[in-house]
Nucleic acid binder design. Sequence first.
DNA 1: AGCCGCTACGGGAG
DNA 2: CTCCCGTAGCGGCT
Length: 651
Amino acid sequence: MAAGPALPAAGAQGGSARRERKAAPPARSERRARRERRGRAPPRGRATCHPARLRQPGGAGALVFSPCGREGGAARERENAPRGLEGNRSFACCYRSFPVPELRLLKPGSASPPPPPRSPGFVSQGRRAAWKRNSPEAEAGTPLLAGPRSPSRRCGKGAAAMDPAGGRGARARRGTRPAVPRSRGAEKGAEKGAARSPERGRVAGQSSNGAATPRAPRTDAPPARGSRSARRAPAARELPAGGAASGAEAFLAPRSRAPAARASATPRSVAAVPDGADAAPARRPPADALRLREVLSRLSLAREEVSGASTLVNRVVSHLIQAIRGKDSCFSSIEPQNAGSYYERVKISKPNEFDIMLVMPVERIQLDESDDTGAFYYVSFKRIPKGKGWLKFLEEDGKLSAFEMREALREIIKQEVKTIKDVEVTVARKKPGCPAITLQIKNPPSEISLDIILTLEAKGSWPISTRNGLKIEQWLGTKVRKNMRFKSPYLVAKQNKSEKVLRGNTWRLSFSHIEKEIIKNHGNSKTCCESDGPKCCRKGCLKLLKYLLEQLKMKYPKELEKFCSYHVKTAFLHSCVMWPNDSDWHLGDLDHCFQRCLEFFVDCLQKSQLTHFFIPQYNLLSLEDKSKHHFLSRKICHELNNGFPVFHENY
DNA sequence: AGCCGCTACGGGAG
DNA sequence: CTCCCGTAGCGGCT
């Protein structure tokens, strides 16, 4: 992107009325312009909405899906043999082994041209400031419990009266004064907040006292208003004939779509012809979609719980970071990086598990594969960093000992948790082979589990084993993929169990930071799930997948102990690749999309083949556990064919 | 140059 | 809609 004073901000280029409105305060637009001149990406990199990005699904995604086998061993329908993958190497390469969905691709001539590159978009750097802000002092005024819930959902006035004290001046943030030039020290507390731009959270014409302008209930499809919708129209017009339905949808088996389409607020054409006998087992009553949504709503995190848990976790983490940095010169450069489902916003049920990576940048290291998975490595230094205290973690052969490093960190943490006041924290017992140091934080009446993961940021390019992974070109774009691969790969201190002698010197590649980025920016079009953009059900599907596995694990703890949420997350990411378009994930099609993900996962289980999303040669389902994979696949099929009874069971 | 206070904004809950 | 948390950039300060 050429820099220059005349360069329009990405948001303006995208033509979003909302963004232009947001850019109104002079201070901010000036900042943005300055940022652009300095060649930086716009905040969060999501401001660009290139009409051509909203292309028709010519790349892939059109499919017909047969239901999986029934409980009891009915043969799976296989009449939709894989074909049509030619013309799309990435899919052919990675997904040819999935026989059930049939990817019918448009001919090269009819396919849309490759999408224009997206703006870099991923400008992430752990910022210490954020962590400092979460210090106990900053949190002191934050009440753990929000005020009583307003009886009405539109709680403008009531909400304005809620908890006037609290962290970061947020309560007063949406004042009505225009943005004023910043001056440090002069504006504290409410003043500070009042100085903020009032534009956010308000629509034109809304009264300043917080009373909401009456409006129609929200639907899945935002009404055509503002310039965003208008600009989306050309892209829609590019779609193949078939009205509002995308090219992909035109191919979709109508079987289980009919109810979903009814649930969708967007009028869409649905093929009228049911597809024969295999339709029966997976046909869902129309109420299914509603029930899944009801399940989803049960899984959302309560605000008070989030508030309480995040306060505790942030307090503990910021304390530990300060202490660890000061204790050992080797760890002085650690940066916390939030990871895992809570920070990906796909945590379900309770905010009781947090993952924090403590990232240590390391330069000039050499990675040697420790086995043929392509995931485990020995780490050694090409040149040992001076004065950093690394020597004590090196073995005789020069390999960096993951075990020793983690133990050193663990010792520091064990000492430090004792000094944390007001919060009761204990270090959990070691779990063999687990890269995390798990802290238990008392949060009566329950506990929060905080996983601290020692992570090396291996400055340099990704190992060769990842070369054909991350096949997101059709879904997120080639530029996004390139930018992601520009980021350093991470390594976590994880024992490779396949080693004959466990010496604790192997490190496993970790892509938590990339996964988080993908899940937070999951749309094929950049506006997916933004407040004015179309909502998709990708996250909903992932949450349901996690919930299903969680529930089944509760029901069959012994049989399913080997499965973890990373399996379903991986299957989900593959699903996103197979159905790359936002039109494949309409919010109203939740049940259909969820089934599709599950059927893909079941297929992986039946074949004992679930490819690591970033390391294609790495199979997450080891062949030794075939019977367990089949067990889970049978249980999932049972759920699929019976309306997910396990969602309504309590364990 | 790096730290840190501040502001802005997205996303999710209610 | 508002509220709140997480995230990220700006810019003053050291």
